[in-house]
Write a protein that binds this DNA or RNA. Structure first.
Length: 222
DNA sequence: GCGACAG
DNA sequence: ATCTTGTCGC
């Protein structure tokens, strides 16, 4: 089956918003995955207007690396809060296409549902890839939340007009929380559990940490 | 007009 | 995200 959703990337800011609003109603918030054999982390770094994307696929739940992929591309679309997918999406898809096998779950360094139109980069790319995804950001973009308790595992909801759109989750005791939200086909509870399952180190899931390291390393070499 | 604002 | 020195907390 060919990709169902596709759209141009070289668009104006207003067109980008229009595309988001059109795609948003197709995002699925319920779990639609079964066995999880692999889970991946994706991240992008920018040097001299060049984007470097890295994806690290880990066997789950042992978190052993089974495959990685890199891609680079000039940065064209500007950074605008809410439109991150249009800036980083293309180079990320380029890296993901190099994988022998797409991961069962993919975690992004950015939001999912906790976005003004409920279509953060994790939702957007999950829909285009037709795969389950999770958003895991370092800072809030949309919605209100209270600081969660200081112990690892404690969390508080991120809400938008009484609707829970994500959670501020403490992945390490006494360390700033991460902001987790559903991407595509993974509900909030499962997203939070998986993010915690992927934490073996600092405060981001091991998957994203490794991808970040890899993306930084790649531009240092290039 | 002012404040907020993923990466 | 990137740039970039000293500095606060455990």
């Amino acid at each position: 089956m060919r990709p169902i959703y596709q759209h141009p990337w070289n668009v104006s800011l207003s067109d980008a918003v229009a595309i988001q609003r059109r795609l948003a109603c197709h995002i699925e918030w319920d779990n639609r995955f079964s066995q999880i054999d692999t889970i991946a982390g994706v991240d992008v770094c920018i040097r001299n207007d060049k984007l470097h994307a890295a994806v690290v696929v880990l066997k789950f739940p042992v978190l052993q690396c089974v495959e990685t992929a890199l891609a680079e591309q000039p940065a064209t679309f500007p950074y605008r809060p809410g439109l991150l997918a249009f800036r980083e999406g293309p180079v990320i898809l380029k890296a993901l296409k190099k994988l022998k096998r797409l991961p069962d779950i993919t975690i992004f360094d950015g939001h999912g549902r906790a976005h003004p139109y409920q279509i953060g980069i994790a939702c957007h790319l999950g829909l285009l890839l037709n795969r389950p995804t999770i958003g895991c950001a370092k800072k809030r973009l949309w919605g209100q939340f209270e600081e969660p308790g200081n112990q690892k595992g404690q969390y508080s909801p991120i809400t938008d007009k009484k609707t829970i759109i994500g959670a501020a989750l403490r992945t390490r005791t006494n360390v700033k929380p991460v902001f987790v939200s559903s991407g595509h086909r993974v509900n909030l509870a499962a997203s939070m559990q998986l993010v915690l399952d992927c934490c073996r180190g600092y405060r981001l899931p091991e998957t994203i940490r490794q991808a970040h390291h890899l993306s930084v390393t790649s531009f240092e070499i290039s």
